[in-house]
Design a protein around this nucleic acid. Structure first.
Length: 832
RNA sequence: GCUCCAGUGGCGGAAUCGGUAGACGCGUUGGACUUAAAAUCCAAUCGGGAGCAAUCUCGGUGCCAGUUCAAGUCUGGCCUGGAGCACCA
C-alpha cells in the first residue's frame, strides 16, 4: 500500500470501476425495505456550483448510510432542462437550445461522476427529451379532462422594448432582465391550472408533514393565505342609471360594520362605470388610467401614500341605515375578495390613513373597556367590546363576528365566506424551449386537445431564434398549421409552451419507472417507491416547486394514477454556501470552482469539508483553510492505515477480557459507532459525525503512541484490536470518503466493495464506561468532580459526595437543606 | 406591518431528558524534528483575580424578569440579525 495519499489517482480508478460494474444500480425487486433518497434535480446551467456539491453530497451520504443499514435504496438524478437560459443562449448565437443543453448536461454529468455520487444512472430523467415531455403533455391532458386546466384572459408581464411577454422570473424589480425596460401589464388569453381547487387540502395536509420544517410549512400556509370572514351586499341608493345595484364586499371584520363610513372599489372593478356619476366620471377615468400605467416599481414601494377619488354615488348600510359614499382607490385589489372594501377607519390602519388624508368621518365601534381610545391618532385593532352598534352593544368583538354575520345571513344580504390568497397557476409561456401545450384551435370545433396516441407534440426544428417581438416557436410554419383531430379540417396549433415548473412537478414519480415507454409510470411501481423518504434541496423552492408538486400528487391521485397524497415524507432544506459571509455569486467574484477543488484535493476532501463545519440546514461558510484542514485529516487517516497495513487484518477476532489499554480503545470505538450512527439517524448532523471521525482517529493514534513508545512491537492482541479500530473507522467513513475507504479496503485485501458491507454494530455494554465522573454541586455550582465506579446507588453517591474533602470544607458550618441525586451523574447539595 | 428562524470564545460550531458550557476543527502562540523550509508531531488557547507552581477563586451562552435544588436549554417581555409574504380588507 502506498504510503502517501494520492486522491486524484484513487478517485479516477474507482469511478471507472463503479461505472463499469453499475455499482449503484437499483433493482425494483428486493426483500429489503425500500428507501427513496432524492436531491432536487439541477438546471443544466453549465457547471456545478458549491450549492450543488453540498446538496448532492448530503443526499449521497444518506443514501449510502441507508444502503449499509439494509435498505433497498433508490437514489436517482436527472435534469430540469427546459427554460429560458438555453433559449437566450440560442438567441445570442442563433444555435439550437438543445445543443447548448446537451453540452451542459454532458459536462455536469462528468462533474457529478467526479464527486463519486452513488446514482443509478439508468434512471436518469431529462425533462427536455421527448420521452419525458410526452408524459408531461399526457398529464396536462389528464388534468384537462378533470377540469383542472382552463384558459382565460389574464394580465401578463409585457416588455415593449423586446416586444414579448416575460415570465414572472424574468421581471426583476419591475424591469425586463434583458433590456432593463419597465415592464407593463397586458391582457392575454392564458392557460391556467386550477390549484385553488386544492387550496384547503394543501393547507390542511401540511399538518401531516411531520418530517418538514416549520419554516417551510408556515411559508406555504402564508402563501395559501386562508382567512375566514363574510360577504355583505350593500345596496346602492343613487346609481346614475336608476337601476337596482349592490356592491358586495368581503371582510374579516364583520364586528365593525356599524363603523363603516365609506366604501372603496378597486380601479379595475367591473361595475365601476355604472357606479360613477357624470360629474365625477372625468376624475375617476383619469385616476383609473393612471392606475393602469402604474409600473411594478411603484406598486412595490412599501410606504406609498394612499390615493383615491369619490365616485359620487352612495350606499346604505343595511345594519343601521346610515348612508356612506363610494370611492375608488388602488389600495383595493381587484383580484382579492370581491374587489371592494368596506372601510372602517377607526379599526383598520389602511382605512385610517385614507380617511385622515381625505377627511372622511370616523366612528368608534370597538372599545377596550379598561383603556378606551377615541381613535384620533391611530386605528384600534385589538380585541374589545362593541359600542355604537345597536343591539350588539356590549358583545365581545370575537363573538360579534359570528352574531353579526348570522344576522345578515338571516336577513338575506350576507354569507359566511372563506377566502384564499392563492391564485390559479398560470402555466402559459410564449417561449420555445418548453413542453408544447398539446391543444389545437379549430375554426369549427374550437379548442381541441391532441389525442393521447398522437403524443408527443414535438418541438419544431425550423425555427428562427433571432426573431424579435415574438416567441421563436411562432416562426415555424410546419408547427403552426395542422389539422383538427375531430373534424380533420384546418386548425392552428397552440404555440404556448408550459412553465418549466410543470415539468418539475412530477419528475420524482418518473424515476420510479424511468424507462417505461408505454406509460407515464406504472401505478404499482410508483406506489412502491413513493413517497420520497428524504428530499433534500434549497429553501428557495419552499413555496413554488414544493407546493406545485404537492398539488400534482393530489391531483394525480384524484385521476386514479397513484394512491398516496403527499410526495415528500421528509424534507431537508439545506443552507446556502457562503464565502466571506456572502452568497457565492459570479458578480461578487467570490465563487469557488468545484473542478479546482477536485483537482487540487480530490472529491473526498470536498465531500468531507462541505459536510464538516455547519449542520446541513444552516448556511455554510466556505474557507480555503477549512479545505486544507480536511485534506490534512484525510492524509492522517491514510497514513494511519498505510503505515499499519501489515498489522491490519480484515478478519480480526477480539478475545475478551482484553488488556486495559486495549479495552479502552475498543470502548472508544463502540462509543464512536453509537454516536455516529445516532447523529446520522437523528437529524443528519454530519458536522458532529465528522468531529467523531476525528476523535476516533486521534484515539487510535494516541493508543498507538502509548504502545510503541520505546520502539516496542505490537502484540497479537494489539493487532486484533488495531484492526477492529481501523476497519470500523473505515466503514464509518465510507459514506463520506467514498474513494479513500474503497482503495484502503481493497489494499487490505477486502473482498468486493466496502460500499457493499453492512454498517458497524455497537454493543451497548461495551459502549459504556466502567467508571463515571460524579459531579458534585453546592447550590447548583460545580465544586468537585470525582471518579467513581459505575453502578453506585443514590445513597452511595451521596456519601461519596459528602466525603469529598473539598465539599466538606465548603459546607462546614452550614445547614444542608436538601440533597438531589441524579443517578450516574451528579449530586447537588443545597445548603444555607 | 405580519409570519418564521437564529443569537454560545478571535472564527465555524458542540452540549438526547433542564444536570460538568465551549466537544471537534480553523486560527493564534510556544516547542520538537530539519542546515533551512514544507510536511509531521507535542503543548497552550472564554474573561477577570490570587499564586513560583501544581492549583484556587469569581464572572460568563444578545438584554430584563420568572419557574427550578439546578436554565445555553423552559415561560413572559424586549433587542439585534436573517428569510418569506406584503395595501389580502
Amino acid at each position: 500500500m502506498k504510503e502517501s495519499y494520492f486522491p486524484q489517482e484513487i478517485e479516477k480508478k474507482w469511478q471507472a470501476v463503479w461505472e463499469e460494474t453499475k455499482a449503484f444500480k437499483t433493482l425494483d425487486e428486493s426483500d429489503k425495505p425500500k428507501y427513496y433518497a432524492l436531491s432536487m434535480f439541477p438546471y443544466p446551467s453549465g457547471k456545478l456550483h458549491m450549492g450543488h456539491v453540498r446538496n448532492y453530497t448530503i443526499t449521497d451520504v444518506i443514501a449510502r448510510f441507508k444502503k449499509a443499514n439494509g435498505f433497498n435504496v433508490l437514489h436517482p438524478i436527472g435534469w430540469d432542462s427546459f427554460g429560458l437560459p438555453a433559449e437566450n443562449a440560442a438567441m445570442k448565437h442563433n444555435a439550437d437550445p438543445e445543443t447548448w443543453t446537451d453540452e451542459n448536461i454532458a459536462y455536469m454529468t462528468k462533474q457529478l461522476k467526479m464527486l463519486g455520487l452513488s446514482y443509478d444512472w439508468d434512471r436518469e430523467v431529462t425533462t427536455c427529451k421527448p420521452d419525458y415531455y410526452k408524459w408531461t403533455q399526457w398529464l396536462f391532458l389528464q388534468l384537462y379532462k378533470k377540469g383542472l386546466v382552463y384558459k382565460k384572459e389574464a394580465a401578463v408581464n409585457w416588455c415593449n422594448e423586446c416586444g414579448t411577454v416575460l415570465a414572472n422570473e424574468q421581471v426583476i424589480d419591475g424591469k425586463c432582465w434583458r433590456c432593463d425596460n419597465v415592464v407593463e401589464k397586458k391582457y392575454l388569453s392564458q392557460w391556467f391550472i386550477k390549484i385553488t381547487e386544492y387550496a384547503d387540502v394543501l393547507l390542511e395536509d401540511l399538518d401531516k408533514l411531520l418530517g418538514w420544517g416549520d419554516n417551510v410549512k408556515t411559508m406555504q400556509a402564508n402563501w395559501i393565505g386562508k382567512s375566514k370572514g363574510a360577504i355583505f351586499k350593500f345596496p346602492v341608493i343613487d346609481a346614475p342609471s336608476g337601476e337596482e345595484m349592490y356592491v358586495p364586499v368581503y371582510t374579516t371584520r364583520p364586528d365593525t360594520v356599524f363603523g363603516i363610513t365609506y366604501l372603496v372599489v378597486a380601479p379595475e372593478y367591473k361595475d365601476i362605470e355604472k357606479l360613477t356619476t357624470a360629474e365625477n366620471s372625468q376624475a375617476v377615468e383619469e385616476y383609473r388610467a393612471n392606475a393602469r400605467k402604474m409600473s411594478e416599481i411603484e406598486r412595490l414601494s412599501t410606504d406609498r401614500v394612499k390615493t383615491g377619488v369619490p365616485l359620487g354615488t352612495h350606499c346604505r348600510n343595511p345594519f343601521n341605515g346610515e348612508i356612506f359614499p363610494l370611492w375608488t382607490a388602488d389600495y383595493a385589489l381587484v383580484e382579492y375578495g370581491t374587489g371592494a372594501v368596506m372601510a372602517v377607519p377607526t379599526h383598520d390602519t389602511r382605512d385610517f390613513d385614507f380617511a385622515k388624508k381625505y377627511e372622511l368621518p370616523m366612528k368608534v365601534v370597538i372599545e377596550n373597556p379598561e383603556n378606551p381610545s377615541d381613535c384620533k391618532d391611530a386605528a384600534y385593532t385589538d380585541p374589545g367590546v362593541l359600542v355604537n352598534s345597536g343591539e350588539f352593544n356590549g358583545m365581545k368583538n370575537e363573538q360579534a363576528k359570528q352574531a353579526i354575520t348570522k344576522w345578515a345571513v338571516d336577513k338575506g344580504f350576507g354569507e359566511f365566506k372563506t377566502q384564499y390568497r392563492l391564485r390559479d397557476w398560470l402555466i402559459s409561456r410564449q417561449r420555445y424551449w418548453g413542453a408544447p401545450i398539446p391543444v389545437v384551435y379549430c375554426e369549427k370545433c374550437g379548442i381541441q386537445p391532441i389525442p393521447e396516441d398522437q403524443l408527443p407534440v414535438l418541438l419544431p426544428k425550423d425555427v428562427d431564434f433571432k426573431v424579435v417581438g415574438k416567441s421563436p416557436i411562432t416562426t415555424s410554419e410546419t408547427f403552426k398549421h395542422t389539422t383538427c383531430p375531430v373534424c380533420g379540417g384546418q386548425a392552428t396549433r397552440e404555440t404556448d409552451t408550459m412553465d418549466t415548473f410543470v415539468c418539475s412537478s412530477w419528475y420524482y414519480l418518473r424515476y420510479a419507472d424511468a424507462n417505461n415507454s408505454d406509460k407515464c409510470f406504472d401505478r404499482d411501481t410508483v406506489n412502491h417507491w413513493l413517497p420520497v423518504d428524504q428530499y433534500v434541496g434549497g429553501i428557495e423552492h419552499a413555496i413554488l416547486h414544493l407546493l406545485y408538486s404537492r398539488f400534482f400528487t393530489k391531483a394525480l391521485r384524484d385521476c386514479g394514477l397513484l394512491d398516496f397524497d403527499e410526495p415528500f415524507k421528509n424534507l431537508l432544506t439545506q443552507g446556502m454556501v457562503l464565502k466571506d459571509g456572502a452568497k457565492m455569486s459570479k458578480s461578487k467574484g467570490n465563487t469557488v470552482d468545484p473542478d479546482e477543488i477536485f483537482e487540487n484535493y480530490g472529491a473526498d476532501t470536498a465531500r468531507l469539508f462541505i459536510l464538516s463545519d455547519s449542520p446541513p440546514a444552516r448556511d455554510f461558510d466556505w474557507s480555503d483553510a477549512g479545505v486544507e484542514g480536511c485534506y490534512k485529516f484525510l492524509n492522517r487517516v491514510w497514513r494511519l492505515i498505510s503505515t499499519n497495513a501489515d498489522n491490519i487484518t480484515l478478519d480480526y477476532k477480539l478475545n475478551f477480557p482484553l488488556e486495559k489499554s486495549n479495552d479502552d480503545l475498543v470502548r472508544t470505538v463502540h462509543i464512536a459507532i453509537k454516536g455516529i450512527t445516532n447523529d446520522i439517524s437523528n437529524d443528519f448532523q454530519f458536522n458532529t459525525v465528522i468531529s467523531k471521525y476525528r476523535e476516533l482517529t486521534n484515539a487510535i493514534y494516541d493508543w498507538q503512541g502509548g504502545k510503541c513508545k520505546d520502539g516496542s512491537e505490537l502484540s497479537d492482541e494489539d493487532k486484533q484490536v488495531l484492526s477492529f479500530a481501523v476497519v470500523s473507522l473505515m466503514k464509518l467513513m465510507s459514506p463520506v470518503a467514498v474513494h479513500l475507504t474503497e482503495e484502503a479496503w481493497s489494499e487490505l485485501g477486502g473482498v468486493g466493495s466496502i460500499h457493499e458491507q453492512d454498517w458497524c454494530a455497537w454493543d451497548e455494554n461495551l459502549a459504556k464506561s466502567s467508571s463515571i465522573t460524579l459531579v458534585v454541586q453546592i447550590n447548583g455550582k460545580v465544586k468537585d468532580k470525582i471518579e467513581v465506579d459505575e453502578g453506585l446507588d443514590q445513597e452511595q453517591m451521596k456519601q461519596v459526595a459528602l466525603d469529598s474533602p473539598k465539599i466538606k470544607a465548603q459546607i462546614e458550618g452550614k445547614t444542608v437543606v436538601k440533597t438531589i441525586v441524579v443517578p450516574g451523574k451528579l449530586v447537588n447539595i443545597v445548603v444555607k
